[in-house]
Amino acid sequence: MFVISVISFAIQDGLGDPLRQMVGQSVSDAEREQLREDLGLNDPVIVQYARFAANAVQGDLANSYFYGEPTLDVIMDHLPATLELVIAASLMIVCLSIPIGVYAAIRPRAWLSKFFMGVSTVGISIPVFLTAIVLIQLFSIGVTVDWFPADTGWGTWLNDLLSTDGGMPSYGRGQDLTHLFGTWDSNFFSWDGLLHLMLPAVSLASIMLPLFIRLIRAEMMEVLQSDYIRYAQAKGISPWRINFLHALKNTMLPVITVGGVQIGIMVAYTILTETVFQWPGVGLMFLEAITRSDIPLIVAYLMVVGLIFVITNTVVDLVYGLVNPTVKLTGKKA
């Protein structure tokens, strides 16, 4: 955390002058200088850092220039939106990648597996903002196709088949939010909220989903080759039980490790998704903080995201111990 804070502080010189964003065009130099002095921007970086660090250890990460309130409050305001997006995307990934991955491993030669693999290769190579734009065009704006002659029955049918109505909300979280606690308003409890969540979550999931399908498939195929599976098959245990109880359990070990790291990365990926969908989460907030050179907010964001990484990795390590008893945590008696 210390390292993150130093690095984020060091880059602030490259971010430009926050003052321009705060004052009008005809404000005189002298007044600008005064404001700069008030904000402490004229002190050497070391002094600024010392002041920041002294406050930070007491849990105070300074005030955002733009919002005029503590940066942690600002982040807490925006974090629930991002977490919901990540949760929704993760759910999609888990629910889809495991069955598809397992199926592709058990029946590697089936047409359906080949289709899934093909799609996932395409999916992995399309950048997330493109996915998002395509989704918006298809499901929010709608597409009318008239490639086929409309006077024939089959032409009309094909045109209708390929045209979409649109109508899905393409931006923001909608009006119908359910208040849970504190700053947390949830999208999960109303139809309108879920609709708003749908497109952003799909586009966010689209980057990780193919990765997980391929990962699960590869691991599963390897596990299926191992001796104990052959032994189980020889013993005549039902294939269902072998595949989903014995094999899947071992398949999931590396998947959990990768998954933990990927969830952290996904929080970072939300920057793109949130920008395209105007999803009011921390990613969008961070991007705007950069264009405004809101340095305290940038530093605080990096620290919080760093913290999320540390926590998810720790949790993954702990979970790993539960799933695989052969991994013992140090300090625990064997």
Partner: peptide, 13 residues
């Protein structure tokens, strides 16, 4: 809506 494309999409949709 800061992103130009999103703003236009929001109107068109």
């Amino acid at each position: 809506i800061k992103e130009n494309n999103t703003r236009v999409s929001a109107l068109l949709s």
